[in-house]
Design a protein around this nucleic acid. Structure first.
Lengths: 339, 339
DNA sequence: GTGAAAGCGCTAACAG
DNA sequence: CTGTTAGCGCTTTCAC
């Protein structure tokens, strides 16, 4: 019950306990830890020894309060029903967590839907985070708009027309253009594109890359072979039926979800890949990992996107300047589906 | 520059500003908000009006510091490479976020691997959360053990031998038993099971349910038809080859990942489902959503698991007592693959 | 080089 | 019913 027994109690030991135990002031302890201000090398050592010995962990919350910081970054995940199982966001999150932990930050997550950003507002209002990572980008992006208006530190994983928001992305236009070019050069003459939800910037960019490849090679695109907003199995199956009728020789899909559904339909029609039609995907997940034949695709290190976004955000919070746009490499992986 | 202009500044307005603006004490403002302690109905009203008018948002961090709480719960996600894209955890997380937001808590996430829980320790040491949700359960579960030893409030999504940790799960044994029973009763005589990583409790439970169904019906299980630790495509393909040779008439898989690989192999062998062999999965994700034929499976509302876990944890933190184990319903969804 | 004191924004006895 | 006074655990002037 004596004062000096404090550190044995279940409560965590505080900076005050150390000061008391060492006969120093709280200020000195603080300085010994932060390195700020001048302090004697010997006392510094003494403090650090004491800290190690007593396994002292500073209270980050209190530190934050004193500095008007939280040492947290917020990650906004989409909660729209059709996206809830998309692994992209999970991989992003892993990357962000990794970056944050390395810089002594923590990650708090919340969700938004296309038309409801109340939880994002709440997170900011509650002053629980020092900055925000957005993990998807829509055409009229409410979160991006809100963050821009409020001037809250933020970085976007993906691209956005608005240059004023910091962005981390891979170059979808270039990547899709490159993959398409390879396919065109390999002799494809009747290419089709099954593009995803055009409300997502990324799907517009993929479409644009596809178009650009044709332009660059001076080849016409057949508009009747371009399908947008392939957001459910019904429309995908219908589209596949139509393009097969029109003599397609190569199908490119916006992502693996579309691709796996297209492949299922082709199989049902007994239309063999790659003999009768080549198939490639613009986004490579685990979904088609063990498909037979293996599917050619654009591959990006999504976790690395998260790492980069996290680091950039924390730099920003620290007041350092960061690039307005940084790009993560992509890779073109050719497999049997386009042989 | 005058004192009274404070609320126009970019800084957030504080409880002190309100007190000053209204000529009351900070205590009174605090009481008007929390409802604790007695306070005049009229002053309470006045305060609330002022708050609304000036769009005041209390600083949760400061509140927390004063109460030794954080109003955060931690969610531990597995970062093992082979699990990173599994949508189960993402759905859990969504549910936990939903529960937390509704109870004015936030969610901070971090990761562990099978043999490294330093980030979990860090989260607790930093005192950033009031409790922890574990989203997976292994046989020698380091996080569960650690939390038990430290006595930190925690709930586990999944099951664990150790009864002392609060658990939220669906009844995998009963569910798998029920589905297996249906298949046995429908005439299957040579059933095979492709079970997942036996280091995961859930996969052991699924196996147990499968066995129990046989026991209950007094039917022998053929050990050569039971495969454990089907963690990669190679072993799965090999297993499928073997069981087909042995005259299997029904294949049950631990989860959709195993199932999709098994289906791919069957297709390659031109072994039609369900004509030559029935197929079912013990865990239903979006992975096989549009497979042809549709796959019979056990279906559970994973997000609801998260919601339940989140609510239970926050109750616990509030000092209320919670059930040691609560179960979420499962559903057996029979489709063409077992017709 | 070190310490005293004030303060981050809020809550919680204890008085009146 | 309301105000005063201490804190929560840490940082940060400003003195010495």
């Amino acid at each position: 019950m004596r004062e000096s027994n404090k550190q044995n109690a279940s409560k965590n030991i505080t900076i005050g306990d150390i000061a008391e135990g060492l006969g120093l002031s709280k200020t000195t302890i603080s300085r010994a830890m932060s390195g700020k201000g001048r302090i004697g090398a010997d006392t510094k050592q003494k403090v650090q020894d004491y800290i190690r010995e007593h396994n002292y962990k500073p209270n980050v919350i209190a530190k934050g309060l004193a500095q008007s910081k939280t040492y947290n970054i917020g990650v906004i995940l989409p909660a729209d029903a059709n996206l809830i199982e998309i692994p992209f966001f999970q991989s992003c999150l892993m990357g962000i967590c990794e970056a944050a932990a390395g810089l002594d930050y923590d990650v708090v997550v919340t969700t938004v839907t296309e038309d409801d950003i109340t939880l994002l507002k709440r997170l900011i209002d509650n002053q629980k985070v020092d900055g925000i990572v957005l993990t998807r980008s829509l055409v009229n992006d409410m979160p991006a708009k809100y963050l821009k208006d409020t001037g809250f530190p933020a970085v976007l994983i993906g691209s956005n027309e608005d240059d004023s928001i910091i962005q981390v992305d891979s170059n979808h236009i270039a990547g899709c253009c490159e993959l398409t070019t390879i396919l065109l050069r390999s002799g494809c003459e009747h290419m089709a594109l099954l593009a995803g939800n055009q409300n997502h910037i990324v799907n517009r960019n993929r479409l644009e890359g596809f178009m650009k490849a044709h332009r660059d090679l001076n080849m016409a695109v057949d508009d009747s072979m371009i399908f947008r907003d392939m957001t459910n199995n019904i429309v995908i199956q219908k589209a596949v039926g139509q393009i097969v009728d029109r003599g397609v020789d190569c199908i490119v899909c916006s992502d693996d979800f579309i691709c796996s559904r297209a492949l299922a339909k082709l199989e049902e029609m007994n239309w063999s890949v790659p003999q009768k039609v080549k198939v490639a995907s613009f986004y490579n997940s685990a979904q088609l990992e063990s498909h037979n034949p293996p599917i050619s695709a654009l591959s990006i290190d999504v976790k690395e996107l998260g790492v980069s976004a996290g680091k950039h955000l924390i730099q920003m919070i620290a007041g350092e300047s960061v690039d307005h746009k940084s790009l993560i490499n992509y890779e073109i992986v050719l497999k049997r589906s386009t042989n």
